[in-house]
Design a protein around this nucleic acid. Structure first.
Lengths: 210, 210
DNA sequence: TATTTGACTAATTCTTTTAAATATTCAAGA
DNA sequence: TCTTGAATATTTAAAAGAATTAGTCAAATA
């Protein structure tokens, strides 16, 4: 199975592969997975459809690669912003803001991930879980720093990080869930969710304070 | 429109109406809304199908009435348990335990409510929102008591209550969401969710402490 | 040998039709 | 005011066919 090989191939490996990723990213981010065809992606680049299959074994792998690509971009972005920060609350706020920024920008890309509950293809599941674990590690690490500096008292870092993460993700989920109207939340709705997440996180962190 | 009249009619109004509610409750709780037919409910009682329509204008109204019936039962149950409690954390723990108990018992009844996101019929939406608001008020009241006793410091009761509620509901949602396997979470999974909710609520309340 | 393609096949989704199940109505009786 | 059997109206389910889209491959190119 060469899916994994392609999926985890270093990005510099092939110029054309990146072209495809970028093009697919634009389509997926705008129209979502199901409303984007391989033919369209190929046409955008004036490639043949068959060429896409030379670089990616199937559509799902391409989608996963794009998702992974964006998630990595996001992670690096966050990591960069986090460098000078040594305050727990500020760090969490930055994470929340950045994540919301990416969710807004790539909503339809992620949307497939949100709504597909049952029967997640093998490798998509891997990407999602991997992303979750990266987030989890990040928050764990932030909590550890907070404890090391004496600001927080935490008995189980990983569990506490998971609690916070679940609360925040769940909060987003539950708000987006009952937006009756349209497919795409408005800017105001995104902002409202972010505000709630921030306030909730602040209380949570205060609850861990020494 | 006599739906509302029937929906909010005092329960003692009609013996037979209760019979129908109870019977429908059993069916809905076990098989869910869509897998329960009016004919089955009627047959359970040896009533004619048409009689159901004498007491309830349509299936959805019956479902709503059952939901309301169970929610009211739950609210009263919780209120009773809460009477002797004057500690914020204990109060929230009791609410969480009771709610989980009801969710377990009536899972398929609520399941329709959880999964139906778009196109919620008018009156079902009312019942759901009403239930949410009752929960919200309850937590608001508990927080107010905590503040009055000097244990908590809260600037905006309603907002804070909503934050807690969203976190807890969201946490349940997100965990149940990615239970790949079956339709019905296992007892262990329910317990795991409850444990997370409890821990999360404890930290949250500590975060509000004076 | 590594890429690239047009033309082909396979799988999936979308429509339409029809049949069956189920909800809902109603005239008439108790 | 209740209650029912029988009739009608809606909704769902299944089947069939058409259309779209995913995926393959032998041959061409560089």
């Amino acid at each position: 199975m060469n899916k994994l090989i392609l999926l985890f191939m270093p990005k510099s490996a092939d110029e054309k592969r990146i072209k495809i990723l970028e093009s697919a990213k634009r389509r997926f981010a705008h129209y979502g997975m199901s409303k984007t065809t391989m033919a369209e992606i190929a046409k955008d680049l004036s490639f043949s459809k068959a060429l896409l299959y030379y670089y990616f074994p199937d559509k799902n792998s391409l989608y996963c690669a794009v998702l992974d690509y964006v998630i990595t971009e996001q992670e690096e972005d966050i990591l960069e912003k986090l460098k000078p920060i040594n305050n727990t609350e500020k760090a969490i706020m930055i994470i929340l803001e950045k994540r919301m920024e990416y969710i807004k920008r790539y909503y339809n890309l992620f949307e497939y991930t949100f709504n597909t509950s049952k029967d997640v293809p093998e490798d998509l599941g891997k990407v999602i879980i991997c992303s979750f674990e990266k987030q989890h590690e990040q928050i764990t690490s932030i909590l550890k720093n907070g404890a090391k500096s004496g600001a927080l008292v935490i008995d189980n870092y990983e569990e506490t990080a998971r609690l916070l993460l679940f609360s925040l993700m769940g909060m987003r989920l539950i708000v987006i869930k009952d937006l009756k109207h349209s497919f795409f939340p408005t800017k105001e709705e995104f902002d409202a969710i972010l505000e709630m997440q921030k306030k909730m996180a602040q209380i949570f962190i205060k609850g861990l304070s020494a």
